[in-house]
Amino acid sequence: MNDCLFFGSNKYPILIKNEPEKITKPIQFKFENENENEKQIKQISSDEEFSTIFLFKNGKAIEYLITVGYSNEAILTIEGNVFAKGYDIKLKNPKEFINISSLIKNTNDRIIEDIVSGDSSIYLLTSNQNVYGIGANYSGQFGVDYKTLSKTEKPILMMKNVSKIFSGNSSFHVFLLNSNQELFGCGDNTSGQIGLGESRNGEELKKLTKIQNIPKGKIIDIKCGSLYSIMLIEDQNQNPKRKLYSCGDYRYNGLGKTEDTYEFTEIKSSLFGNDDDILDFSVGLNHTLILTSKFKIDWIWK
Rank of each mutant, 00 (worst) to 15 (best):
residue 1 M to I: 10
residue 6 F to W: 12
residue 15 L to Q: 10
residue 16 I to G: 11
residue 17 K to Y: 09
residue 18 N to W: 11
residue 21 E to G: 08
residue 23 I to H: 07
residue 26 P to R: 04
residue 31 F to N: 04
residue 33 N to K: 14
residue 35 N to D: 12
residue 35 N to I: 15
residue 40 Q to M: 06
residue 40 Q to C: 11
residue 41 I to G: 06
residue 45 S to T: 10
residue 51 S to W: 13
residue 56 F to P: 13
residue 58 N to E: 09
residue 59 G to N: 10
residue 59 G to K: 02
residue 60 K to S: 12
residue 60 K to I: 12
residue 66 I to S: 00
residue 69 G to P: 07
residue 71 S to M: 10
residue 71 S to K: 08
residue 75 I to F: 11
residue 75 I to W: 13
residue 77 T to Q: 05
residue 78 I to R: 15
residue 80 G to C: 04
residue 83 F to T: 03
residue 85 K to A: 02
residue 86 G to F: 04
residue 87 Y to K: 01
residue 88 D to P: 05
residue 88 D to T: 13
residue 104 I to P: 02
residue 106 N to V: 04
residue 108 N to L: 01
residue 109 D to Y: 13
residue 110 R to K: 06
residue 123 Y to E: 02
residue 126 T to V: 00
residue 128 N to T: 08
residue 128 N to W: 15
residue 128 N to I: 01
residue 129 Q to W: 05
residue 132 Y to I: 00
residue 133 G to A: 02
residue 133 G to H: 09
residue 135 G to I: 03
residue 138 Y to D: 08
residue 139 S to N: 10
residue 143 G to C: 08
residue 156 I to V: 02
residue 158 M to Y: 09
residue 161 N to K: 03
residue 163 S to W: 02
residue 168 G to Q: 06
residue 169 N to R: 14
residue 171 S to F: 11
residue 172 F to D: 08
residue 175 F to C: 03
residue 175 F to W: 14
residue 181 Q to M: 09
residue 181 Q to G: 03
residue 182 E to V: 07
residue 188 D to E: 11
residue 192 G to V: 03
residue 192 G to W: 09
residue 195 G to C: 03
residue 195 G to K: 06
residue 196 L to T: 02
residue 199 S to E: 14
residue 199 S to N: 14
residue 200 R to L: 14
residue 200 R to E: 13
residue 208 L to D: 07
residue 213 N to D: 12
residue 215 P to E: 03
residue 216 K to E: 08
residue 224 C to T: 00
residue 233 I to W: 11
residue 236 Q to P: 13
residue 238 Q to W: 05
residue 244 L to I: 02
residue 245 Y to Q: 02
residue 248 G to L: 10
residue 250 Y to N: 12
residue 250 Y to P: 00
residue 251 R to F: 05
residue 255 L to K: 06
residue 258 T to F: 12
residue 259 E to D: 05
residue 263 E to R: 15
residue 263 E to N: 13
residue 264 F to A: 11
residue 266 E to Q: 09
residue 268 K to W: 09
residue 269 S to P: 03
residue 269 S to V: 07
residue 269 S to G: 06
residue 273 G to I: 05
residue 275 D to M: 12
residue 278 I to V: 00
residue 278 I to C: 00
residue 281 F to R: 00
residue 283 V to M: 06
residue 284 G to E: 03
residue 288 T to F: 03
residue 289 L to E: 08
residue 291 L to S: 02
residue 293 S to I: 05
residue 295 F to I: 07
residue 296 K to G: 04
residue 296 K to I: 06
residue 299 W to D: 12
residue 299 W to V: 14
residue 301 W to T: 04
